[in-house]
Design a protein around this nucleic acid. Structure first.
Length: 566
RNA sequence: UGUCCCGUGGUGUAACUGGCAACACGUCUGACUCUGAAUCAGAAGAGUUCAGGUUCGACCCCUGACGGGACAACCA
């Protein structure tokens, strides 16, 4: 019997037995107490100075997911307060990536939309005697800030009168001063144990063209003076951000309090880390700039565009975000979990195709010289509604080198001399002879097929140990296969010897471009289409693909306990 | 040696807010299979960083250690 006094479902979502993550718990508590009425309004606030990566995907899924779950809203806001680093190229790519991931934002905003308001906020602080114009140089400001264990010293300019500050700040805006000669600072506490509270800079002079406001401004707010207020202006309820902004929270709250404006609740979570890769924008940028990879959307990159080109699906990424959940402790997720989510999705969706990556020729000596037939093959056994396709079969075939062993090792149940194996969707064959080249390497395999064992025929359910894939030589389509491996060798790319950096951990074999043979069906595929090369792995048609020469990116291999060389 | 945050199987996340730890990935068995995939069945693996305290009882509360992380850009 249940204790009637026990709170039902506390810590549990109604209807599900999945427990709530710590953010959901806070939100549900806020809804219960009507802290913001019953509103939930989140936002995803990227700076348009680079491409989004899978860490951002976690944040996107979190913010948009929360608003969806609680029937709220989620804005897309670009924190574009530094015109020297930002560009519309990035806002476009960010919007594309968010949409592709499967989300629609309620409002599209820019911190630059609020420049005038932010300026007024600054004036308000000056009028309250809480901000002043400081003429110290960058070096002097750094030197007087103190250290983490010792207090800083007050700027000599902190004593300026309100009127003088008002005048100077207005003239900063007018463009009367050179870059770097003056800044507006908040007057807080030079002795605060929180360095960010030691009279932080609010505005700096930057005679730079902004991607949206052009040359309207020559002073720009610092991120810290913009971010929290933007959330306030948009009436965000829960400002979700990563852990490093935890120390900034007191500053944001100070601004909100002094400005007497709406107060959102900031909640920090641990950013995503995945082993064998790097996630910092700076490092990813260096990989692109130094041509370690070919572009931001190189399929080896953990960028959203890179993953897309690699063959990832939005569903796989969303599910991944769901499974890793969110917490405050530092974490390193095993790539195998990401790949699991990918395979799980692709297994249900991918068109099956046969392709041979390391060909070895096989001749069916008892098959008619010019004989040829079209066999039925299942498009996707996980989804029979996708039906069948025709695969051409003939006397000469390619099979994969891995599927043949002249001297089979224990438990090898593919092809070997004297043994039978099934050709997927075709016949059972037996290997009779191994023909060799002068150097001893295998030239071709001579086999015989059993005509009654064709898929669907009387003897077709005869049991044989193995089934292998194949491609008819005469009908084979030559394709380019780009085989990707992890970008870094050690689990932690930052794990380096003295004097080296993460680049020394790069995997020299992260990309292998090879030529392979596929069944003709591959010609029907368009860029971004996904296929599973049976028994090999999932592949995705690359944008470089042409009808003469299809190009396939290896997305991820199939799981397998036996050793594959692909 | 400052302030703040964090510490649960190999990895990640839970544990109804005090009743001796669950789920997922991974790993290993076995079944099935015209993909050594998928699917199905099962196993191993932590006694919750450590030491005290409160309590009948602590992963959960308190204290202290230890360990990890964040913070001193006119970056975000």
């Amino acid at each position: 019997m249940e204790d009637p006094n026990k709170q039902p479902n506390s810590g549990q979502t109604a209807g599900e037995n999945k427990s709530l993550n710590f953010i959901e718990q806070i939100i549900e508590e806020d809804i219960r107490t009507e802290k913001y009425g019953k509103r939930v309004h989140t936002r995803f606030p990227p700076e348009p100075n680079g491409y989004l990566h899978i860490g951002h995907a976690k944040s996107i899924c979190l913010n948009f997911g929360l608003s969806k779950k609680y029937g709220g809203k989620c804005n897309l806001r670009f924190d574009d307060t530094n015109p020297t680093k930002e560009d519309t190229e990035y806002v476009d790519s960010i919007k594309e990536d968010v949409k592709w991931l499967g989300f629609d934002w309620d409002g599209e905003y820019y911190a630059s939309d609020y420049f005038e308001t932010l300026y007024e906020y600054a004036v308000k602080l000056i009028k309250k005697g809480k901000a002043y114009v400081c003429d110290l140089t960058q070096e002097e400001i750094a030197a007087t800030r103190g250290t983490v264990t010792t207090a800083g010293t007050l700027s000599p300019f902190a004593q300026r009168s309100i009127d003088e500050n008002l005048d100077l700040f207005a003239r900063m805006r007018k463009g009367e001063f050179e870059d770097g000669t003056k800044v507006l600072r908040a007057r807080i506490d030079m002795a605060s144990p929180n360095m960010l509270l030691r009279d932080p800079i609010l505005y700096r002079i930057l005679h730079a063209e902004h991607h949206r406001t052009g040359n309207d401004w020559c002073i720009y707010p610092m991120y810290d003076f913009a971010h929290g207020q933007c959330d306030s202006i948009e009436h965000i309820t829960h400002s979700i951000c990563t852990l490093e902004f935890e120390v900034h929270r007191p500053l944001y709250e100070w601004f909100i309090k002094e400005l007497e404006i709406y107060a959102p609740q900031q909640i920090e979570f641990a950013r995503l880390n995945i082993n064998y890769t790097v996630m910092s924008k700076r490092k990813l940028l260096s990989l692109v700039q130094e041509n370690v990879v070919n572009s931001w959307d190189d399929p080896r990159m953990p960028t959203i565009c890179g993953l897309r080109r690699r063959g990832y699906t939005p569903e796989a990424l969303q599910n991944f975000a769901e499974i890793i959940s969110v917490a405050k402790r530092d974490n390193v997720i095993d790539v195998s979990l990401l790949e699991h989510c990918l395979r799980e999705d692709l297994n249900k969706k991918a068109q099956r195709v046969m392709a041979v990556l390391n060909p070895i020729k096989l001749i069916l000596t008892n098959y008619p010289e010019n004989g040829e037939e079209l066999l039925d093959a299942v498009n996707n056994p996980e989804d029979i509604s996708t039906g069948l396709r025709k695969v051409p079969f003939s006397r000469e075939l390619f099979i994969d080198q891995d599927d043949f062993m002249e001297v089979p090792q224990h438990k090898f149940f593919r092809l070997s001399p004297g043994n039978e194996v099934r050709l997927k969707s075709a016949y059972i064959i037996r290997c009779n002879d191994v023909i060799k080249n002068a150097d001893g390497s295998i030239k071709e395999l001579h086999c015989t097929y059993d005509a009654n064992t064709r898929t669907g025929l009387s003897d077709s359910n005869r049991k044989v140990k193995g089934t292998i894939h194949w491609v008819s030589v005469r009908h084979a389509v030559e394709i380019e296969t780009r085989l990707y491996d992890k970008l870094f060798l050690p689990e932690n790319p930052e794990d380096i010897e003295e004097g080296e950096d993460f680049r020394s951990n790069l995997n020299p074999d992260s990309l292998k471009i090879t030529s392979s043979f596929a069944e003709p069906f591959i010609k029907n595929m368009k860029p971004l289409d996904k296929v599973q090369f049976e028994r090999v792995g999932y592949f995705c048609v690359d944008a470089d693909s042409t009808s003469e020469k299809p190009v396939l990116n290896k997305t991820v291999g199939l799981k397998g306990s036996w050793q594959k060389t692909v």
